[in-house]
Write a protein that binds this DNA or RNA. Structure first.
Ligand SMILES: [Zn+2]
Ligand SMILES: [Zn+2]
Length: 887
DNA sequence: ATTGGGTCAGCGTAAGGC
DNA sequence: GGCCTTACGCTGACCCAA
């Protein structure tokens, strides 16, 4: 025993308003060496600084460090000190920041509440991790009945005991996967399967019940889309909503998540605490006590008294109601007097009138009167008008530039040559010279890369000389055969789907975009009623699946005229390279862009080079945002972060975020950034902006992207941002640990998210499953890059403006490139492709989920979005426009 | 205002004496 | 071996200079 050991007197602790010791839970004595510690642990660490080499653990390096436990194991105690962040370097003297003080006080208050509720009574867990002989909590539902308690209890007693829980979720995943496998096998023989035509977009694409997570329902041999049956949890595997195995699978998953979090824990039963950012997790040591506790729900109302005190500890009462937040943050839902809200007119913090933020218009038009002619941030990014580069300024001679030349120069770096030859590009520095209506905002050759790169590059052979070989190289015989088989199969399936489309679409509400009749029947749609069915398989062949693999080498059937068809009339390449003369006159006559869409394909003929270029761009523009981590280090870092958070949670208990009302109240009264959310938001805003910049740079490298109309480019970036974000985050996601990386490059785990963002655990769960579903595709790096480009160019979003025929063609080329990649690696490329398409469809159904996720950050409320005009422009109309809730 | 660091009574324990 | 005394190391409550 130490000496003069004080009995734990919680009253004293409360009086001091100091959080308990992070090491031993004794009443806190302040912030020492970087952590809230007691006097004893402070002294111990102080001595340890001088000499700790002699520390030895008699047990298994996992001794419980707890006040009142007799002689503490030195080594374990020291390790605990380190783990809670104590360090010589962390010494900090001086006044508390108001934020920290507030956090401390709130934590103490919360602890007090919990103690009153009996949750902090010690003895719930003893040394062995088994239950103590005497149950302390009346009505505590910690019985062998819930089956999960032993595991949780074990893990709580410092044993690295999460194996059991992760084991369970592993089981769930195995079952899910098996189910998926089985079902996918069925689907390949079944009538119902995927149809995917990039020309008409995903929104008319049906995925099978078997593979699909789209809300489909079998009705005899027909399909109908049940838009109302949004399954709350489409598991990673994705199942039909009606199958028993699905239910089973879901149950397993649900139970596994329960075992991980405890029944109800984190959902309804967790108390909230606020702490400084370093110690995010707080409060109950015993998650058990929360788990299934009859007191659940009680915490949400009034357990945290947002009582904030001044720095000397006195409470600040309601008399401070008139306190005007120093930084003028507008707080919705608070009852600030109207005049005060009016006074608060700092433009940076005011709610932005996003109606004014048109897509390609300048931001903050009203507040920046002198910039009304300046391009918006995204415009600046997308447009090269700000840099001195070659512009095409007149549409009058589009025919002069042949796509073949463009393609050649794309790879061979003869940009200047073309420019001079055709006199179509001028060196312009003024945006005003560029007609916004003209599709070519910049040279198609400008790929957003320093043009010196092109100049210095050794010119290769002209494309026309090697085109034939390249074209045919993508499809060998076996592939063609296989593809033809699949094609025929898909053909009939699509036909079937189409029939059901026709049938069901009449009853579908007009607003349901997925089923919009006009979409289905639109001339450009492959699965239109006219073009579909066995009667016109060639149509399908020429535009749809066949083209995926054959690269047009064999499929030369020229798309039949389908009214005024844009991309549908893609002219497949002839077996021999098209002569320039041929290409010259093969212009699209529908979209008015003056470009021969079929020649977009030329930009993609050297698929390997396109892939390499995209991969390179992805690495330099996209990866950097997330903070590059060597693949071999990823797992270690994930684990480290997880361990850190788990340890904290073990010590301090689970923690959910301070809700807005509470935060706002504190803020109104004291002006304090209670849980540092404003600070966090600022960082996130920066990262998001960086990410968008990277995304734009990346997109610009997509061959053909730069040819698009400016507003279209903006729309594509704007509406793909979200999915790209998810796809990128997935690269660093670990399903077992539930750790991923945010755009800010910081590792985040479930525990972080639940604390930092007011997101429902179920939503987070769904998001993780979504991440996982992408991982399950097992794409390699290049394939993932291609997938991202496809996401960017996805023609089926409700983006504004609608994607052009040109854009669809780019998309189509990207899809073909992806298939080309898959062919190189897979025995069954089309099966994999189908899975990818299925995921893309899932992504579409998850759009709202992801949007809610991003919304939960509440950028517009808690950050200075005004200082991030680019981001604001990107987010406007998606997150903040209230009328945009439904789509 | 707070904390790092010093102080030293008090405690456990090992060694030595009887 | 059992019991007592002494020496020593660690602990932690307390104090205070910075
Ligand atoms: Zn302590
Ligand atoms: Zn130990």
């Amino acid at each position: 025993m130490g000496r003069k050991r004080k009995a734990i007197n919680p009253e004293d602790a409360l009086k001091s308003n100091l959080p308990p010791c992070r090491v031993c839970e004794a009443p806190g004595a302040g912030f020492h060496y970087g952590a809230n510690t007691c006097e004893a642990c402070k002294g111990f660490f102080h001595r340890s600084l001088r000499l700790h080499s002699g520390y030895r653990c008699e047990a298994g390096n996992n001794c419980v460090i707890e006040h009142g436990r007799g002689k503490l194991c030195q080594l374990c105690r020291y390790k605990k000190c380190i783990s809670v962040g104590m360090a010589k370097e962390a010494i900090k003297t001086g006044r508390y920041t108001s934020s920290k003080r507030t956090n401390d006080i709130l934590e103490v208050k919360s602890l007090e509440n919990k103690r009153k509720l009996g949750l902090l009574d010690n003895g719930l867990v003893n040394d062995n991790g088994s239950l103590p002989p005497t149950s302390v909590l009346p009505g505590h539902a910690l019985t062998s009945g819930d089956g999960l308690s032993p595991e949780l209890t074990t893990s709580l007693s410092s044993v690295r005991g999460f194996t059991s829980t992760s084991g369970l979720s592993h089981t769930a995943r195995v079952i899910s996967q098996a189910l998926l496998n089985e079902l996918s096998e069925t689907s390949s023989n079944d009538v119902i399967s995927h149809s995917y035509t990039p020309l008409n977009g995903l929104n008319q694409t049906l995925s099978s019940c078997a593979l699909g997570s789209a809300p489909l329902r079998k009705e005899g041999r027909h399909l109908s889309i049940d838009l109302d049956s949004q399954s709350s949890l489409a598991s990673a595997a994705g199942q039909s909503t009606s199958s028993d195995s699905d239910q089973f699978c879901r149950d397993v998953i649900a139970s596994s998540s329960n075992s991980l979090f405890g029944q109800n824990s984190g959902i309804t039963g967790t108390s909230r605490l606020i702490q400084n950012p370093l110690t995010v997790f707080a409060s109950t040591k015993n998650t058990n006590s929360v788990n299934g506790n009859p007191l659940k729900g009680d915490f949400s109302a009034g357990s945290v008294v947002p009582c904030v005190t001044s720095s000397n500890g006195r409470e600040i009462g309601a008399q401070n109601n008139n306190f005007l937040p120093s930084n003028g943050l507008p707080l919705a839902g608070t009852n600030l007097p109207a005049d005060i809200t009016q006074v608060d007119s700092q433009p940076d913090f005011l709610p932005v009138d996003f109606d004014q933020l048109v897509l390609d218009g300048p931001p903050l038009v009203s507040s920046l009167p002198h910039q009304t002619t300046a391009p918006s941030p995204i415009t600046t990014l997308l447009d090269i008008s700000t840099s001195s580069e070659f512009h095409r300024i007149t549409p009058s001679h589009p025919s002069v530039v042949t796509s073949a030349r463009l393609a050649d120069n794309f790879f061979n770096g003869e940009k200047n040559h073309v420019a001079k030859d055709n006199r179509l590009f001028i060196n312009s520095t003024s945006a005003a010279e560029v007609s916004p209506s003209f599709p070519f905002q910049k040279s198609p050759l400008d790929l957003g890369v320093n043009q010196n790169q092109f100049v210095n590059r050794t010119p290769g052979p002209l494309l026309s000389e090697t085109a034939a070989g390249l074209v045919t190289s993508t499809s060998d015989k076996s592939n063609s055969q296989q593809v033809n088989g699949i094609t025929n199969q898909l053909s009939s399936q699509i036909s079937l789907l189409n029939n059901s489309f026709s049938r069901t679409s009449s009853s579908a509400s007009p607003g349901q975009k997925l089923m919009a009749l006009e979409e289905v029947l639109s001339p450009s749609s492959i699965v239109s009623s006219e073009s579909m069915g066995a009667s016109s398989p060639d149509m399908l062949m020429s535009h749809g699946v066949a083209g995926l693999v054959s690269s047009g080498a064999e499929q030369t059937s020229q798309g039949k005229k389908q009214g005024s068809l844009g991309p549908g009339s893609v002219k497949a390449s002839s077996p021999t390279p098209a002569s320039e003369a041929e290409l010259l006159h093969a212009f699209c006559d529908t979209c008015g862009c003056g470009l021969d869409h079929s020649n977009i394909g030329l930009l993609y003929r050297r698929r390997d080079e396109v892939i390499a270029r995209l991969a390179e761009a992805h690495e330099s523009f996209m990866d950097q945002c997330f903070g590059r981590v060597a693949p071999e280090d990823v797992a270690a870092q994930q684990k480290e972060h997880y361990e850190q958070c788990r340890l904290k949670q073990e010590v301090f208990g689970k923690l959910t975020s301070l809700n807005d009302a509470e935060y706002d109240e504190i803020f109104i009264e004291t002006g304090l950034d209670a849980d540092d959310r404003q600070k966090r938001m600022e960082g996130l805003i920066d990262s998001m902006e960086k990410f968008i910049r990277g995304l734009v740079q990346f997109a610009k490298v997509i061959p053909g992207f730069n040819m698009l109309d400016l507003s279209e480019k903006i729309g594509l970036i704007k509406y793909s941002r979200q999915e790209i974000c998810v796809a990128s985050a997935t690269a660093y996601f670990d399903y077992d640990l539930r750790v991923f990386k945010g755009v800010d490059g910081k590792w985040k785990c479930e525990m972080d998210m639940l604390y930092q963002v007011s997101i429902a655990p179920s939503m987070l769960e769904e998001l993780f499953e979504f991440f996982h579903s992408l991982q399950n595709l097992g794409l390699n790096k290049e394939e993932m890059v291609l997938l991202k480009t496809i996401i960017i160019m996805a023609p089926d979003r409700d983006s504004e403006p609608q994607i052009s025929a040109l854009g669809r063609e780019v998309h189509w080329q990207l899809v073909q490139t992806l298939v080309y990649l898959l062919e190189k690696r897979m025995k069954k490329p089309m099966a994999q492709f189908a899975r990818i398409i299925d995921w893309l469809m899932t992504a579409r159904t998850k759009e709202k989920l992801v949007r809610e996720f991003f919304k939960s950050f509440k950028f517009e409320k808690y950050s200075r979005l005004g200082q991030a005009p680019l981001l604001r422009e990107m987010l406007s109309g998606i997150y903040f426009d209230l009328s945009d809730d439904e789509s």
